[in-house]
Design a protein around this nucleic acid. Structure first.
Lengths: 195, 195
DNA sequence: GATGCATTTGTCATGGTATGAAAATATTGT
DNA sequence: ACAATATTTTCATACCATGACAAATGCATC
């Protein structure tokens, strides 16, 4: 319980993804970053994917390469900036009313409160470049129906497959890209904010 | 060389002193904090004194107790808030002009630029309480001639002995205290700032 | 000086980091 | 479509620093 809070708390900082964002931002490979930091590529991989927690000296080495302070990895986003919900991990709510259920609900985390909603059916064509990055106040929810879509926000790219969903603060520049060989379709719901 | 930069860089964050400041600020003992964090008192002592670098999970535990985020330990003070220069570590500038030197210079780090100076000879009497904390814009330099003086600023107490010196941003509340059995004397130079 | 508490220091074992290489995956070119 | 290359992940192993424990030191108060 407490250990959950603990590891959860650490995970919330998303140290690994931040490192990955820094690295890909400079278009470096794990091996190259390894040679700069004196770390093995495998180690870096585990750090970036959150399989291990780097020691502070190790994190310091990485920070030095990118010219950032350690605080870079610990600035907390007040409310979680975004969340990806994979089809596999999504929880299907139990339907207790009927013995032979005729429907199911699966919760798509989407922090809207009182904000007006707009919904779109979006199609992204294969072998095209990313959409122009754009930003607008509010929150955006995307649910992928078919195909693969890459969403880039905050220097981080998230690849979503069919039935995956994700929400994010749309105030930060974000762009979409079809990353599969087939057309991708998705439902996009935008909750316009006022801040 | 690089390893110096590394450990130096880590030390600059002064994680240990910050923990100690948090702990003493709540007037907790090492053992008490230990029971809250599940860490041994000895371990905490080593962390606070900088003998070991805590792992991030460990640091997280400590942060949770005080209700601060990890960024608390990594926010860097733009310009160093204060610096203590011990008599032992001070560098005596080589006097190259004379073969038999008649004088020496030792640099007392003191970041004044264009600010008007005031100088005082201060006496602090033994077995008296701290001076009232006070603050005023600028920088202050103190050079201890005799005795022992404790300077408290930012919840951290620095004990200076004879020939030690220290400067600090006087905009933060600070107080002096004679911590030895004998009268302490010191030169205090104040550079009044305008910010 | 003696007692009690807080902090520090020493020693040791454990666990998790870090390595290195091989397997798996992605990417590029022909 | 395939080969070739680059990148990432996985695996088994080694090792080192952390962290626990206990003893020792410091520091007050009686």
């Amino acid at each position: 319980m407490l250990s959950e809070t603990l590891s959860q708390g650490l995970a919330n900082y998303r140290i690994g993804p931040k490192i990955r964002a820094l690295r890909t931002g400079k278009s470096l490979g794990l091996t190259q970053l390894g040679s700069h930091t004196g770390l093995s590529a495998g180690m870096l991989s585990k750090i970036e994917t959150g399989q291990v927690v780097p020691t502070l000296p190790t994190l310091m080495r990485i920070a030095l390469v990118f010219g950032v302070g350690l605080e870079h990895f610990f600035e907390e986003s007040e409310e979680p900036l975004l969340e990806v919900i994979r089809a596999k991990t999504r929880i299907r709510l139990p339907n207790t009313t009927e013995t032979m259920p005729s429907f199911f609900f699966e919760s798509l985390d989407f922090p809207v409160n009182d904000r007006p909603l707009e919904a779109y059916l979006a199609e992204f064509l294969p072998r095209t470049s990313s959409t122009e990055p754009h930003d607008h106040p509010g929150v955006e929810l995307i649910y992928v129906i078919t195909g693969e879509i890459e969403i880039t926000i905050h220097d981080e790219t998230h690849k979503l497959g069919a039935r995956d969903s994700m929400y994010f603060e749309s105030q930060y520049p974000h762009s979409y890209k079809c990353s599969g060989d087939d057309k991708a379709t998705a439902i996009v719901v935008a909750a316009k904010g006022d801040e």
